[in-house]
Amino acid sequence: MTQSDLTILSNREIATSVYEMKLGGNTISIARPGQFIDLKLDGFFLRRPFSVCDLENDVLTIIYKVVGRGTEHMSSLTAGSVLDALIGLGNGYETSTSGASPLLIGGGAGVPPLFMLAKALVSQGKSVTAVLGFNTAEDVFYKGEFEGICSRVIITTADGSCGIRGLVTDALTEAGDYSYVYTCGPEQMLKAVWSKINTSGQFSFEERMGCGFGACMGCSCETLCGAKRICSDGPVLYKEEIKWPTPA
């Protein structure tokens, strides 16, 4: 982890309430896809964590959805503004376990980190299929970008307005054979994917964080390998170690 002052290069709405922000600066401590950055915003006490969507020549891309006052403030920032960032946080995805034809499954705000992952896997000569799930056609983003690098991209929407009607798990048959699964999305989606896939895989989780770097124990979860901090032992957990919370 390092602290870095990042300059906003662009900040634009790419789907309903979904923004793509490109940031320039020293990004040297980002080592793997699936890692995240933690941004300090004026007027807000805690930093905001965002997964790295892309990293090319020290230009870092994040994609965020406006869900509260912090992200609303972010959406108003313009090119040239400087943000205090902690970067290179979290363990990220391990690509060496993927086999020849990995399947990437993303849901909504969980789609972004899979883009940098897809690029890494493709550069290793792997044939990547991506299943990307959204609520409706207006929420879909980065379809073209994924199509530009993946062997195959399947979109699902809950209302059927784009791609297959239904959830990402409804597209598993369509996705065909795969050697391994990488996924990121809401917990309910991760759980559904976990129960339906027939290979091993890596699951990226989300939790409300205090610090983002392992100090406060705010985002801990229980796993079959003991308590883990989503921010620093995760956010990526292996399929075999996940312990789903029992419904209250």
Partner: peptide, 30 residues
């Protein structure tokens, strides 16, 4: 970090929330 006799996981999540000029934690002595 606050240490107890036996290991503790602490409270269920979410256990962090932002507040005006501060934060709430309910970690519960993990």
């Amino acid at each position: 970090k606050g240490t107890t006799v036996l290991p503790r996981f602490g409270n269920p999540t979410p256990r962090i929330a932002e507040t005006p000029s501060g934060m709430l934690n309910a970690v519960g002595l993990q």
